[in-house]
């Protein structure tokens, strides 16, 4: 490509990048403003005074507990989801059995259920096994509801893995489990990292399930903690902004880490090709 072409390409790419980074800038400004400024002023204007006390207020509101809950619930659900989905993808794409098509269909249907349809039945199910107000209910729900999409994303990759790998492994006397954990899983690192990122975002930002199944303060997560600043007649938007900033930071860090994995994974799986 020639110079002008590259120039235009970069101009476009950077323009898009600006557009994508704006919400973060806006959110940060937002978190330092008062209610009046947030509504009346331009979204990207600097705050008239930097209200760091918004952060103080949020911190005093016991955000640390919410934060900790968000972290462990997110991580636990990701581990279960990605592991189970990888196993299922392996079984569906690599193993030979009659019902695999049907089972795949079931997962696809699982993708389609609107969560508000499931909410009330789920509540009564958890109630009957005494899992209401128990974070385990949240971990299980996140895992189940993210399984279909995670599986779908993994499938495309599992299909492209060469069959020679298994053949070679089987000939070498390798067990199925060893093949899966030692060969297949490492080969899918890039896509696993992708699904981890996606799961992380979903779990971290989810609030309908937590709000419904959890009632004790000690089990609530960050997104539900934000609700603390939304009142019947009044809402403290500055504090909400501060909570959003605090809650997005760890996910950005984790995201950068895992998104590097997407690339690294390729060099580490030199097996193929």
């Amino acid at each position: 490509m020639n110079r002008i072409g590259y120039f235009f390409l970069y101009a476009c790419l950077i323009a898009v990048a600006l557009f994508q980074i704006l919400p973060l800038v806006w959110l940060f400004m937002f978190s330092l403003k008062s209610n009046a400024e947030i509504f009346a002023g331009s979204p990207f204007s600097l705050p008239s005074e930097f209200r760091w006390e918004n952060y103080q207020k949020v911190w005093d509101g016991g955000i640390a507990t919410y934060f900790f809950n968000s972290v462990w619930i997110t991580v636990a659900a990701i581990v279960l989801t990605v592991l189970f989905a990888s196993m299922a993808a392996f079984a569906i794409t690599r193993m030979r059995w009659k019902l695999s098509g049907l089972v795949l269909g079931l997962f696809m249907v699982g993708l389609m259920i609107p969560i508000h349809s499931a909410l009330i039945p789920l509540y009564s199910m958890f109630l009957s096994v005494d899992l209401i107000d128990n974070p385990l209910a949240i971990v299980l729900t996140y895992t189940a509801y993210n399984l279909p999409i995670t599986l779908m994303i993994l499938l495309g990759f599992y299909y492209t893995l060469p069959h020679e790998i298994e053949e070679a492994a089987v000939i070498d006397g390798c067990s199925v489990n060893r093949m899966f954990f030692r060969i297949i899983l490492p080969m899918t690192t890039p896509i696993m990292a992708t699904t981890i990122v996606i799961n992380m975002i979903y779990n971290w930002n989810e609030f309908v399930f937590v709000n419904t199944f959890i009632s004790s303060e000690k089990y609530k997560t960050l997104t539900v903690g934000i609700q603390n600043f939304i009142g019947q007649y009044m809402t403290d938007w500055g504090a909400i902004g501060a909570t959003l900033i605090i809650s997005v930071l760890p996910i950005i860090i984790a995201f950068i880490f895992f998104s590097n994995k997407v690339v690294e994974g390729i060099s580490s799986s030199a097996v193929k090709g």
């Binding site: 207020k57 949020v58 509101g61 609700q227 603390n228 600043f229 939304i230 009142g231 019947q232 007649y233 009044m234 809402t235 403290d236 504090a239």
Partner: peptide, 11 residues
């Protein structure tokens, strides 16, 4: 109730 500390401290 529906008066969270963050937004409706006085309530």
């Amino acid at each position: 109730h529906l008066w969270p500390e963050g937004s409706s401290k006085k309530h």
